[in-house]
Each structure stands twice: as C-alpha cells, then as structure tokens.
Design a protein around this nucleic acid. Structure first.
Length: 788
DNA sequence: CTAGGGTTAG
C-alpha cells in the first residue's frame, strides 16, 4: 500500500499546484490548443503573400487585433508548456520563431505600436522566458507611447518574480500613474522581504484600495508577526466598504490566532459563513482547524476535520498537529500513516514536535523515514533535524544533513546556516561553524547570535566578545547571548559590565536578560547591583513575572538578605516548583534548616510537586544542620515520590551520615550508588574519617578518590590531614611530597567584598591584596576591641 | 490583459 503511494508521489505535482492547474491553467490550455493551428496557418499564408497594407483605420484596427490574437495564442502555448509537463513540447517550441516573425511583421506594418499588440508582445516574450527581448519590447512600447497601465503592472510583477525589487521599485516610481495592482504587488514584495516600513509607506500613499490590496497588506503584517496591525487594516477595509473575500478571511483567521484574539476570530468565522466563503473554501476550513487547536480546543478542531466534505494534505497535516500539540506523538504518527498522501510539511511537523519535546533521537529517525518516503526536506525540516543533531551532539548525522542541504542548495539559507552553526558548536567544532559563518553570502542577526552563543557554549568568551563587538546590528537576543554567556562561564563581573553596556546602547532588557543579571548579582553577593536590577524590573513592569520573581528571591537569598528574599517570595502572584525550590535552598544555605523543611511541607500542602532539585535543597539543609534522621526520612520519601536520587543526592546523604560519625552506613550507601563516579562523595567520607580518626575506612576512601580523580587536590589534602590527625606524620608528609611531585597546587578558598563598585579579593594561599598590611592591622584592632 | 492577495510545520 505504502509502496504504491511512494512510487506515485514524485510524478504527482503538489496538491496546491493540482488545484491551481484545474481551476485556471487547464481550461486555458484546451482553449489554446483547439484553434491554434487554423489561424496561424492562414496567417503564415498571408505572410508569404507579403504584408497587407492598412489603407483605412478600420482595416488597420482589425489587422492589429488579428496580430494580438495570434500573439495571445503563441503565449498560451508557452505558458501551457511551462505549467504542465504533459503538454506536447514540440507544439510550443516552434511558437517562439513564429512569435518572432509576428513581431517583425507587426513592426513592418506599423501595428507594433498598437496598445494591444504591444502588450501581447511583452507577455509573449515573458512567457518564453526571454527577459532581454521582453525588456526591449517594453522599451519600444514606452517609446511608442503604447504602454498601458497593464504594461507597467506586468513589468513590475515580472521584476518582483525575478527577485529584483530594486528594478521593480524604479519602474513603479516612474509610472505615469500608479495603479492599485502595482501598489499591491510592491506592498506584497516588500512585506515578504521583511521591509515592513517601506511597505507601510506605500500602503499609506495608495489613494484607493481593492480587496487584494487590503488582503496583501493584512497578509504582509501577519507574515511579519505584526498581528494587531493586520487587525487594524481589516477595520480600515470594512470602513472603506470593501467586502472581504475567502482569502481575506483566511489571513484574518491567521492574524487573530497570532494576536491571541480568539473571540474576534470566531466572529470572523461567523462572517465568513454568512458570506458563503466558508463552505466553498477548503483553505478557510483548514485554517479553522488550526484556530481551534491554538484555542486549546482539540475536540472542536477534530470536529471541523471530521465534518469537512473534501480533505486535502493540509487538512490532514493540521489534524496531525492536533495530536502532537496535545502531547500524543504516537497518535500523530498514526495520523501520518493513515494520511492518503503526505508531504514534507506533514513529516516536518512531526519532526519539529519531537525535537521540541526533547525526543531528538526520534526526530532524526523520522527524518530518514521521510527521505525513504520520497519527500524532499525543506528549510524548516533541515532546521529542526539539525537542532536535534545539535542536542544529541551527533556530529556524523549533522554533517550528513549538512551535505544534503548543500546538495539541495539550502545550506546558505539563514535559518539552515544558523542551525548548522549551532550544531557544529554543540559538537565542539567551532572552527567548522566559523567557516560556515564566513562563507555565508548574507547573514542576519540570528547567524551572528548563533556563533556568539556557540563560542560562549565552548567557554571561548574572548572570541565571543570579539564577534559581538563586530556585529553590524544587535537585538535583544544578541545581548542576552553575551550576558548569559558570561554568566554561564562564571565571569559575573563581565556579565554585569555587558548589562551596563546594553543599557547604555538603549536596548531594553527582557526577562531572560534579568535572569542572567540576577544570577551574576547573586554569585557576586552584590546586593547593591541586585537592588538596582530589581528597580529596573519594576520600571519595566515585569517584576510580577514568575521567572523574574524567582531570580530576585534567589538573588536576595544568595546575597544574605533573607528578609527581602522572603518578601519577594510571598508577594509573588504565582509560584512554580522552581520558585519554591529556590526559596527552600535559600533558607538552607543561610542556615535556617528547620524553616527550610517547614517551607517544603507548605509546598507539598499547596499541591505543588517537588522535583529532584527540591529534594537536593532539602537534603542540603539537613546535612548542614546535622539533621540525620530527617535526611534519611526525606531520602526515602523522595524515592516514594518516584524521583530516583542522583549522585548529588548520594553525596548529601554520605555527607550527613559521615558528619554524624555514622561512617559504616555512609560507606555502605556509597557502595550502593549506581554511578560510582562521584568523587565528592568519597571526599566527604574521607573528610569525616579525618574528623573521627577512622583510618581503615579513610584509607579505602582515599584509594577510591585517587582512582576516580588523579588530579583531585582536595583528596590529597584530606588524606594528609587525616594521617596528621592520627599522628601518622610520616604518611602525612609522604602525601604532601606526592602533591608537590604531581605539580598540583592546593585549591584555596577565596572571598571578596565590593567597596564602591570595586571588588577586593582575598585568597587563602597568598596575601595578594596591596593593602593587606593595613587590613591586618585594622583586624587586629577590631579583635582587640571585641575582646575587651 | 481581469491581474494583484492564500490554508498546514518552523
């Protein structure tokens, strides 16, 4: 069954083309083929007898009309061949020489300057894809003052079709009188290229309006995600008493969906039904499926689909998305298999949904199935599957798709190349990403952002900043990329510097910006900067956002201002699991273990589901306050909730047991740890063995620690300390010598304060601060005073 | 010569 479909597909044109062919081109083709031979033959005969003169104006007119009709027949033959492959190619190829001789003949007999003949000549050459002759015919037409509005309209649209907007615009500007049709063509072309401002200017200049003109403007705004502007145009259109048609309704449903104006959408659907544009248009019905889907009413969407008389690939694909959106990807797959025919959009939808939900492997698998089904991937498809490869760090798969996009000529598309840059960077191939970037003929801000983000992902902040500075244009995402890049690489001071540069540049920060900025403030314990950021969120009116609220509460807690942290937490209009976890963690880190545990119980009481991070914060609280029994209780409870402990949970548990001196239990738990790679757990145990002077377990722990991490300095220090504490000085010294031999340097502690915007750092292993002498003196003084 | 605007995925 599937095999039959597969073999048929490449031969069959896409459904949209079929519909178009059926409605417009095919009747034309038949009309052209029947009378084609007869008049042309008689005309050839007349040509052979020499050009007839046109003695009376009436004869001249009829001769010109004949000429025009014949040229129309020639053109019809040309368009018929280019539209349908099954039309006999021989019949059209001999039409071009005929058209050429007709042209010559028309010139000789002086009818070439006839408006009708001139425009037919033009359209004939265009249909034969003879751009040079077309332009010459147009020039002659203008010179002979035979250029009608249609001629200009036609040429403007020819330039637009060729992608030459500059020429189209020049011609449009030079038109003796601009028509609504040309306004429509220009507005549409500019909108499709994202040049909204220029399009709007033309829209406002246009003195009148037609359905197509208003609809093109609406569609342009929708395309550029300016949905509310689209709604405004619709109102304007109605106030000009221009009646919307099926296409207008289609665009308006899209506009309402984009703007989230569902009520309005439904009344527009009502209007479409009343004016009979609903039943007659499969497209309007298809867009209604998506409308209900976006409204969250899957049942209604399904009902629309079921009640449709005629369904096409688009209807089926929309249904497929109804299943994907509700999370039923298996159901979506069943729809795909049940579809009478599939196209690249159907596959692409399923691939994209899998990719978005984190099923990257499935997305890649579906991609190969799509190829096997005979569908050619398009831009969005490449983009989704490359993102999937990026998250899988699948360099081989990604490179294969890169090769495929190269073959199909899509690799230089900005969407595809941004995904390629991202994919290579995630696979740690920054050089390849850079090469792709360098060879791009035109790049947009997204391409730049991808590479900047790629370098910061690989910890190369110098390169990232170099690129960032070179960017021709920066948007909010660019600033977010560089700021979060610094924050992720723990260069918090640089993150704040970039934030200040952002504000100075006039770019308004967004929620994502603040989450990085507040993270930086929290880690620098820079309460003053954090408060300033807080003030900015209030000014921007985003302090009520759940992300901002959580980040603020976290920042205050990490900076030690628990009062403010709690106030933020309790004032938040809504909280999620992350919010609760941050507060529980904040209390725990500041030593309020009991309060932390109470808050956890509150969280559960409100019906919120704790996640693995919540339990980690809770166990952390217990371990820092020596609440052994509680820790054991919550560790068991966590598993009852269906959350399996990670290495970090085990580390916390080992720590709390070991600190309480329950070394045997701690070691037993550690042996049960599924992944035995967590060196910190063994270090915690070793440290406790040091405190409780247990050499036997201590030596085993040290051995494991050494196996796991040869370069783990902490292990050496702990072991050495343990020997020292037991009085085994020789062993202690041996470890110290070993450390020196491995050129290991003991990691030291570091603390800092911020004074008038300047950071002062103090290291445990060396006195580096230039004022350390003075500081020590003051410290002595303070200690002496407090001892009085 | 009756144009010019279009449904599904990202």
């Amino acid at each position: 069954m599937r095999a039959a479909v597969r073999t048929n597909r490449p031969r069959r044109p896409p459904p949209a083309a079929t519909a178009k062919l059926a409605s417009s081109s095919r009747p034309k083709l038949e009309k052209a083929q029947v009378p084609l031979t007869l008049p042309l033959k008689s005309f050839k005969l007349r040509l052979a007898n020499g050009p007839p003169l046109a003695p009376t104006p009436k004869a001249f007119k009829s001769y010109a009309e004949t000429c025009a009709t014949l040229l129309r027949l020639c053109r019809a033959a040309a368009t018929a061949t280019s539209h349908a492959a099954h039309a006999s190619s021989s019949s059209s190829s001999d039409r071009l020489p005929l058209a050429l001789s007709l042209h010559a003949h028309a010139v000789r007999s002086g009818v070439a300057a006839d408006r009708s003949v001139a425009s037919h000549l033009l359209t004939t050459y265009a249909a034969f894809a003879r751009a040079a002759e077309r332009d010459r015919a147009f020039g002659d037409c203008v010179a002979a003052d035979a250029a009608s509005s249609f001629t200009y309209d036609f040429m403007v649209s020819e330039h637009v079709k060729a992608g030459d907007i500059a020429s189209a615009r020049r011609l449009f500007d030079g038109m003796p009188e601009r028509t609504v049709v040309s306004y429509t063509t220009m507005v549409d072309a500019l909108m499709k290229r994202g040049r909204v401002a220029e399009a709007v200017e033309l829209y406002e200049q246009c003195p009148s309006g037609s359905v197509a003109f208003f609809t093109a403007t609406i569609s342009g705004f929708v395309r550029n995600e300016l949905h509310h502007n689209a709604l405004g145009i619709f109102r304007k259109m109605l106030s000009c008493s221009v009646r919307p048609n099926g296409i207008t309704f289609l665009c308006m449903i899209k506009a309402c969906v984009g703007a989230g104006e569902f009520g309005l959408a439904l009344s527009i659907v009502g209007l479409a039904i009343k004016s009979n544009f609903f039943e007659s248009s499969i497209e309007v019905q298809n867009s209604l499926i998506t409308l209900y889907l976006r409204m969250g009413d899957a049942a209604a969407a399904r009902k629309v689909f079921d009640e449709m008389d005629v369904k096409d690939v688009v209807s089926w694909t929309a249904l497929l998305d109804v299943y994907s959106e509700s999370g039923d990807l298996d159901g979506a797959r069943r729809v795909l298999d049940a579809m009478p025919e599939r196209n690249e959009v159907s596959w692409g939808t399923l691939i994209a949904r899998h990719e978005q939900r984190g099923n990257a492997a499935e997305a890649v698998k579906l991609y190969s199935q799509m190829l096997a089904d005979g569908c050619r991937p398009n831009i969005s498809c490449f983009s989704s599957v490359l993102s999937a490869c990026a998250s899988l760090e699948d360099l081989r798969g990604g490179a294969r798709i890169h090769a495929c996009s190269l073959k199909m000529g899509s690799s230089t598309n900005v969407f595809v190349s941004s995904s390629l840059i991202d994919m290579y960077c995630k696979c740690k191939k920054c050089r390849d990403a850079q090469t792709i970037f360098d060879t791009l003929p035109q790049k947009n801000t997204v391409c730049w952002n991808s590479l900047v983000s790629g370098y910061s992902y690989n910890g190369k902040m110098v390169e990232a900043m170099y690129l960032f500075k070179k960017m021709p244009a920066r948007n909010l995402a660019s600033w977010n990329t560089i700021i979060s890049g610094y924050a992720q690489n723990r260069q918090f001071v640089d993150a704040l510097k970039s934030f200040n540069a952002m504000l100075a540049s006039g770019q308004v920060p967004g929620e994502i910006t603040f989450s990085s900025v507040l993270l930086a403030c929290a880690n620098l314990c820079s309460l003053v900067t954090g408060k300033m950021a807080h003030a900015k969120t209030i000014k921007l009116g985003i302090e009520e956002s759940i992300f901002i609220g959580t980040a603020l509460s976290d920042m205050y807690a990490k900076s030690g201002d628990l009062q403010s942290s709690k106030r933020m937490f309790y004032l938040m209009p809504e909280r999620n699991d992350v919010t609760w976890t941050a507060m529980i963690q904040g209390l725990a880190e500041n030593g309020f273990a009991e309060e932390s545990i109470l808050l956890f119980e509150d969280m559960v009481a409100t019906g919120m589901t704790p996640n693995e991070h919540t339990f980690l914060a809770l166990l952390f609280a217990c371990s820092h306050s020596g609440l052994v029994e509680q820790a054991i209780h919550y560790f068991d409870k966590m598993q009852a909730w269906g959350i399996s402990p990670t290495e970090k949970h085990y580390t916390c548990m080992v720590d709390v047991l070991a600190r309480a001196g329950r070394l045997i239990e701690a070691e037993a738990l550690l042996m049960k740890t599924p992944s035995k790679s967590e060196a910190n757990s063994w270090a915690a145990l070793l440290s406790a063995c040091n405190t409780y002077k247990n050499e036997e377990i201590g030596e085993r722990a040290a051995k494991r620690l050494h196996e796991l991490e040869k370069d783990n300095t902490a292990g050496y220090v702990l072991l050495s300390n343990m020997y020292a504490s037991c009085g085994r000085w020789k062993d202690a010294a041996r470890i110290r010598v070993l450390m020196k031999g491995t050129t290991l340097k003991k990691d030291g502690g570091c603390s800092w304060v911020q004074v008038r915007g300047q950071y002062h750092a103090f290291f445990s292993w060396e006195a580096k601060h230039p004022l350390s002498m003075e500081i020590d003196e003051i410290l002595d003084l303070l200690m002496w005073e407090s001892s009085l």
